[in-house]
Design a binder for these strands. Structure first.
Lengths: 223, 223, 223, 223
DNA sequence: GATGAATGAGGGTTCATTCAT
DNA sequence: AATGAATGAACCCTCATTCAT
């Protein structure tokens, strides 16, 4: 019984390796076809190791989702803090976050939304993130309105923006007829219409470095 | 186990029975937990019958989706033809189509979007429907602009509307923090902003009979 | 994908087939080495069929035990009713029941006694049978004492007999240094000592047909 | 997780630690549920250490049994040498050995009897001990008969005694309806009947110190 | 000597599919 | 046409064993 190379690593690194492999497997083979086997193969590790680091497959899937959301969240924070100028700009690029990078992982969110209905933890995590995001946008919309002394329905405006972004993201992911640039352009248009700004004042591509940011949940560029 | 009348039925009726049972099973047990068993139980028919009428499980799932989309499409057509007044109204209610009925089947679209990535036929059907819908909306936007001699970017406007609707639908389905009424209100607001109309002129609930319409793909009200 | 012969049978026959195969597998490979695979192989049926007829492996093992105990019980009853003479004779052959047949299944009882500690149902069944047996013996001992107007500690006498039988059975099963005949002889000796009978009046082998009796749980002769 | 002092210990001490842990694990979790993990946990040592001191799991289980039997044997010897009076008394307490202590390890004998059929070494050890015991009893029975110039079937008498003890032990272990005292009483009754002694002359609890005796295989009191 | 990360064979179970009835 | 018994591949998971540290 020949055993192959056994490079050993600390727990956290292995967990990350497995979570990334999980995301890659889902992205590559789909959710339904992602099994312990495909994930192991993707990670280059043995099947048994998954049970070593995670309670079970569901646990791994849940943590992998958490990992992915963490990356999204960290990127979002990175975008926010990278912008120095004003509330409007912050909100604009914040809204464009889903379109500023292309990592090939979009569709796993679709898969997780499907799985969420039988994995309550996944659903909760998903909703928690969106809720924080929604609150964040609402606060910024309120700030802008206050700045400009506009009387608007803050909640409705925020909801419209958020769901417009979500819809654009969904279209981008499922239809592949729009480009990420189109999405940003549409968001810019809508926001400028709302707040009486000139689109040309806001470049679609932000001036700061998009790719490099600190995160405890790094992801390889492609899926 | 509702085990309906066991007398022989025509093939088409049996197929419909099975497709509806499939949609119900997915809606009830989730996609991943829907098996030949749950579908058979839901239909009140025997397990073996599925292979009798469908190539295999994937085939059944694909046709079930087609069936569902047919229902959506028929309803959409019903809404359009029920409105006699003008382009704006037609577009408005047309955009509100996803929010005019609540049949408890929204989630299955999420499930199918996930499955689409390993079932090309499903993806194609999904995209075909959306494309027709998109073209439809675009045509109407162009008509309205022509009516009012407005100079607008028709494609961008149409895309914004469509994806706003999609985003609202996604939020409604996943988050359950919005109501169907909220969604219609937001659409109305956006459209009136775009075309300089007064929201109060357009009731959220259309005046024609929503429920009763002709379709070759009828669905029971709940999932 | 070639599928082999599929002779179909009614549920009960298949269940019996699987339970007997289970007993044979345990008897042949031991408890620890009896798996779904060995049981399927022993039965000549497919692995999947076990789940078709039993909840799970434990369920099968439990039912197989019940089946075996049923056979023992039926045989016991057969012995009792076959004896026409008197209380003493009835008690004697009743006590000898474990030694009147050799079916090669003795050791599975050992295996089940081990398993009983993690399968409460098995323990319960085991104890229920023994309790009934114990009560039965006690009643007969009391009858004999009454017949002969002897003043004895019925409970202690019954316990002694029962556990002597158990001990002989254990020795026969584990040590294989005694014969079944030895066991009967020892029981006869003890009983005659107790009740002042002459051993020579009671043949070791009863006069009725041992093998043929009615049972709902038939077992093939060897394990 | 009692994780004792981690300083290096002699091999023999570690082995004992692991064997005792094995017996405890079996006693606590049952044979089938005793794994390398439960044994390691019980011992407070690491999983890998087992392979360090034993060939494999079976090896450990076998040695653990040997260890247990050694304890039994040493206790038996202790009882014998503690009695100064006569052959009858020696035989009586010798027969009562299984009932003089309650360490909570009875069940493991059942488990090992089950395992014996797929672990020849275990079977051999079991039989060797019983054979020596049997020979011992036989010798004593012969001595008593000689003392009293009784003409009895020594072998049959010895066998009866031994298997009565075994049967009582089995009943005590599996049924838990008898007490250890009951067992001793029954043995005393049977022996006094055989050899014409008065039970009241022999106290159930011997006068010497039961617990403290020299053994190379010490066991903690509980299981 | 001591650890526990890593392996992979084999366990029980599920389930789409087949096919005799 | 309709059924459900029967199959076996593939699933997730457990666990004894190995071995780098």
């Amino acid at each position: 019984m020949k055993r192959v190379s056994k490079q050993r690593q600390s727990g956290e690194a292995r967990k990350m390796q497995l979570m990334v492999a999980t995301l890659n497997s889902i992205s590559k083979h789909g959710y339904l076809n992602s099994t312990i086997n495909t994930i192991s193969a993707e990670s280059g590790l043995s099947r048994g190791l998954i049970s070593h680091y995670f309670e079970n497959k569901d646990d791994l899937l849940t943590y992998a989702h958490k990992y992915y959301l963490q990356n999204i969240d960290d990127f979002h924070r990175h975008v926010i803090v990278s912008i120095k100028t004003g509330h409007f700009t912050k909100l604009f690029y914040s809204a464009c976050v889903p379109f500023l990078r292309d990592m090939g992982y979009q569709r796993i969110v679709i898969h997780y939304m499907s799985a969420a209905w039988i994995m309550p933890d996944v659903l909760k995590m998903h909703r928690d993130l969106w809720q924080r995001y929604r609150a964040n946008v609402e606060r910024r919309v309120a700030s802008i309105a206050r700045d400009r002394q506009m009387e608007i329905d803050v909640k409705m405006t925020a909801t419209t923006l958020i769901q417009l972004v979500d819809g654009l993201w969904l279209g981008l992911t499922m239809e592949e007829v729009y480009t990420r640039e189109d999405c940003c352009k549409i968001i810019r248009k809508w926001m400028c219409d709302q707040f009486g700004e000139n689109p040309d004042d806001y470049p679609l591509v932000p001036t700061f470095d998009i790719e490099n940011f600190e995160t405890s949940a790094p992801l390889p560029p492609s899926g």
